[in-house]
Design a protein around this nucleic acid. Structure first.
Lengths: 154, 154
DNA sequence: TTTGACAGTTCTATTTTAGAACTATAGCCT
DNA sequence: AGGCTATAGTTCTAAAATAGAACTGTCAAA
């Protein structure tokens, strides 16, 4: 598989995997959502090698998920801030956190709790249907080809 | 980073990444949700190498996401079916598909459309707060340490 | 003028993945 | 019986990605 062309596949999952489908990228994004913005901060909190961090940040900027914003003129220094496209990854991150909470927990309980400022309560993320508002389950969903389909899956 | 210990990190995202955080695993799961079950079917629809497919399937079985179920006694043959733990990954997959639809689309339109059997309509997945039902946005969420936290993130 | 902070880049050894061929079991056909 | 086919893997080597550590360049502060 030529991973550098995965973002051109006629499959929205593949295209998303092309961007966030490696181990470090998701962890970097987690840090971004926790307000980490600077190279050194990412590096020390993740223990990622500097080389790979540099590469991943470039890739995220290239895909328009992070913006490289100067915060010091001399010496020129930059920080990495989520764009709207990046902020829109939030449901993915939250879905993963919730699955981890549910299925990969240990006896110590959840590492993080989430509070919804809007209602003031501690919550879990729930995925619902945009039309009827009911929670979604795989078996209640029927898939059919859209206009961008090239071939039918197996 | 020792990726084989990522599932013991005090972070639910890391634990989830330990399971689904590589490029092939998510594509394999997509096929599973599309009802693909057999080795040959995964292999031919994904063009993954047989070696890696074998490894990934084993890993998914080990983590309890797929079950290896015999469908022929002689010769012994097995197929791979999502467990409840696996089915619970659906929101992650759907969140990724939706992000891809929104941000990585091309002029041809969506590759797949989703119909909610319950209400009969074509829908998008929306992530909402379990407590108030409002759609979630990163900036409206406050994070604080839970009982399983070991150290504060940067 | 030296030290330290920050944001990277460069280098080599190790690990992972790709790509192809090979193995094993059993049914089916002649 | 002998050979062909289907399915589900395993094994092998070359190529690519990652880890780990050291190095570079810029500027501020002491």
């Amino acid at each position: 598989m030529k991973w550098d062309k995965l973002d051109e596949e006629p499959c929205s999952l593949s295209r998303t995997v092309a961007v966030v489908g490696d181990r470090w990228t998701l962890l970097i994004l987690r840090e971004s959502f926790l307000r980490v913005r600077r190279f050194e901060a990412f590096q020390s909190s993740l223990q990622i090698t500097r080389h790979l961090l540099s590469e991943r940040l470039k890739k995220l900027v290239r895909f328009g998920i992070l913006r490289r914003v100067p915060y010091s003129e001399a010496p020129k220094r930059y920080e990495y801030i989520l764009t709207q496209k990046g902020l829109d990854l939030y449901p993915i991150i939250m879905a993963m956190v919730h699955w981890g909470d549910t299925h990969m927990g240990d006896e110590r309980g959840r590492p993080l709790l989430h509070e919804h400022k809007t209602c003031g309560k501690q919550f879990d993320p729930v995925m619902v249907c945009s039309e009827c508002g009911e929670p979604l389950h795989a078996k209640q969903v029927h898939v059919h080809a859209g206009p961008g389909q090239r071939e039918l899956a197996g």
